[in-house]
């Protein structure tokens, strides 16, 4: 909340400054921002609803039961799958991960889950495709998925 207010304040200040220096440019900038917002909004609304559904279904207890310490490869697969499909904001990801470990989930599986929650977004692929092109979106998500898998294996090797 405080971050948001600071951000709004800073941007308001910059916009005022910009308006003072050049009205024309500032108008063009704001018109463009508004257009971007309208362009992103339909996808974002759907994404937000998906976040709500994810968070309500994926309670810590539900996830822990799937990725326990002895869940091994199956647990790793489930963690990567859940992490790639679900969308959970980053400031919730680490507290959630900590809770999961306390509830008996394996560290490597939790690592896979957290990394993929942040880096892979199957549900944001349509938006990403529209902005950057389909192939780019798929390639970026695939490479991020690989990163999460390798990272989880590293965690189980080094810290496990």
């Amino acid at each position: 909340m405080a971050n948001g207010i600071a951000l709004y304040g800073t941007v308001l200040l910059l916009t005022t400054l910009s308006f003072y220096k050049d009205r024309q440019k500032t108008r063009a900038a704001l018109a463009k921002s508004w257009k971007m917002f309208l362009n992103l909004l339909p996808d974002l609304l759907a994404i937000m609803l998906f976040v709500g559904v994810s968070l309500s279904v994926l309670t810590p207890a539900a996830i822990s039961s799937m990725i326990g310490e002895t869940s091994g490869w199956m647990g790793m697969g489930s963690a990567l799958l859940i992490g790639s499909v679900a969308l959970i904001p980053s400031f919730i990801v680490f507290p959630l991960g900590a809770t999961l470990v306390e509830n008996g989930a394996g560290l490597a599986q939790v690592a896979a889950l957290m990394a993929s929650l942040m880096a892979v977004g199957v549900v944001t692929i349509p938006l990403e495709s529209r902005l950057f092109g389909k192939r780019f979106a798929y390639a970026r998500n695939a490479s991020a998925f690989l990163m999460c898998l390798l990272f989880a294996l590293l965690v189980s090797e080094v810290l496990g």
């Binding site: 951000l7 709004y8 910059l14 440019k25 500032t26 900038a29 018109a31 971007m36 917002f37």
Partner: peptide, 11 residues
């Protein structure tokens, strides 16, 4: 605010 910032930077 991020979008306004992006718009301003663009200009």
């Amino acid at each position: 605010p991020i979008l306004v910032l992006v718009g301003l930077l663009d200009q």
